[in-house]
Amino acid sequence: MRKLTALLAGVLFGIGLLLAGMANPTKVLGFLDLAGAWDPSLALVMIGAIAVAAGPLAWAKRRAQSLLGAPMQLPAKRELDPRLIGGSLVFGIGWGIAGICPGPALAILLSGHWQVSVFVLAMLAGMLLFTALERRRSH
């Protein structure tokens, strides 16, 4: 059952990204371009998503288990370390270059545009590089 809800949630997430305009890099860059002709649409994506998710996430915070009996796994870390800020900075620069972040990248991977394949391969390489560096650090 949890496998089914995971698949369903993924499909809905992808449909939402496509409908919202998040899957169009040109639109994302139009939002990030404050000094040009600014397209504020993506602010509404965040407002819509947060308005719906805030209640369920607050409920989840008070529970030890999900409705299907899975352990509730919410991030517990609280400190603001340099990795959080440095990583987010690097991510934001990459996002500003191409207008693509991880969710939309996957949601348009099978849409038939070669550009997204290049982006996703490089993104996976970046993630694997992180894992390799982390493993080396812990040895």
Partner: peptide
């Protein structure tokens, strides 16, 4: 819906790498 890219392959490559590394370090 319309999916329109603004970057060439080099831009996509650099952007993808930065997004991959950055999101993992930034959790």
């Amino acid at each position: 819906p319309t999916i329109e890219f603004q970057s060439g392959w080099l831009g996509l490559l650099v952007a993808g790498l930065l997004v991959g590394v950055g999101t993992r370090y930034g959790s």
